[in-house]
Design a protein around this nucleic acid. Structure first.
Length: 320
DNA sequence: TCCCAGGATCAAG
DNA sequence: CTTGATCATGGG
């Protein structure tokens, strides 16, 4: 734990630096956070700082992070505060570093990804220069990831994020921090299971997605659904299990599997991916979304999720 | 006013 | 196995 050397720990405020050496390849924090991934609501932005709240070892931690430098030569500055009632211990800082490493995919070997497909795929390679350092974000909470994925269906990125924030504000636990600020956690399944669609809709404007959100929550509460049972399942088995759920079709299932459950093989096919893949890989021919997803998995294998992320961002940026 | 957004679902063909 | 209509909601 070399980074512990520069850890400063006062009563309820601490900070540390994640050095460039522990990150496998380049990182573009801004591009990564703002790329519309669905594992959890987008982190809030304050100038050069992104911030979010995560409960680590039972302690709510509000952290901010900023990348200093460029994608190839940088450090990550991290500052965090805790609940005003709970003084953090050194373990909290260790947990936070581990959490960030996980959610930002800092151990994903991006240079290997670039090297491999610069050689093998000149379509995907076109997306590399402008997106250098873009990483997959992975959630830590399966329930949160599933609900966020359901919210994203037939919705815009900014609207499903707004809905998720309203969900937190109205139904999530409120946590106060030492700087006087307060934040809302993501609601648990018990809370959402008790709601009725009308009141949920009126407070979050999630429209017809209210019903599946409540139904899935109730299934978990009633032990009809156990998301942790996905662990160890093959991609196909896990996906078939998810497709049984209301509000979960092929795209939402793949979003959950990729961003929430770390199935790197999953490649969610939305309107953007469908357009760009049929244009560049099928010469503009009409292809079904199922074939598009299968194509991405077969061509990019364990990098299918990353290929999808780069093609998606490129397609939106260039409006392909 | 119509069309679209990181779609899902159901009925028909 | 594909196509079309419908489903809320806010933004362009």
């Amino acid at each position: 734990m070399t980074y512990m050397a520069d850890l400063s720990l006062s009563t309820q405020v601490f900070s540390f630096t994640i050095p460039r050496e522990i990150v496998s390849g380049p990182l573009n924090l801004t591009e990564t956070v703002l790329s519309g991934q669905t594992a959890e609501p987008e982190w809030s932005r304050e100038g050069d700082w992104f911030s979010d709240v995560e409960v680590l070892g039972g302690i709510p931690v509000k952290y901010r992070l900023s990348q200093v430098g460029d994608p190839d030569d940088f450090s990550l500055e991290v500052r965090a505060i805790t609940d005003s009632q709970i003084p953090p211990c050194e373990q909290t800082a260790v947990d936070l570093k581990s959490h960030l490493t996980h959610v930002l995919g800092l151990k994903d070997d991006l240079n290997l990804f670039y090297r491999k497909f610069r050689a093998e795929d000149n379509v995907l390679a076109v997306t590399f220069p402008n997106l250098r350092g873009l990483r997959l974000m992975r959630g830590t909470d399966l329930f949160k990831a599933l609900i966020c994925s359901i919210l994203s269906q037939n919705n815009s990125v900014r609207l499903w994020n707004r809905s998720a924030r309203l969900l937190m504000k109205h139904y999530g636990g409120r946590v106060a921090f030492v700087d006087g600020s307060h934040e809302y956690l993501f609601p648990d399944q018990e809370t959402l299971a008790r709601l009725n669609p009308r009141s949920l809709r009126s407070k979050t404007s999630i429209g017809y997605r209210a019903k599946p959100v409540i139904t899935v929550s109730r299934m978990i509460v009633n032990d009809e659904l156990d998301l942790s049972s996905l662990t160890g399942k093959s991609y196909e088995d896990a996906k078939n299990m998810l497709l049984e759920l209301p509000g979960v079709g092929p795209k939402v299932a793949d979003c959950f599997l990729l961003y929430g459950a770390r199935y790197d093989l999953a490649a969610p096919v939305d309107v953007w991916i469908h357009r760009i893949v049929s244009k560049f890989y099928f010469r503009g021919r009409k292809v079904s979304r199922m074939k598009t997803a299968a194509f991405l998995r077969e061509r990019f294998r364990e990098w299918a999720g990353y290929a999808q992320l780069y093609l998606f961002d490129y397609a939106r940026r260039e409006k392909v």
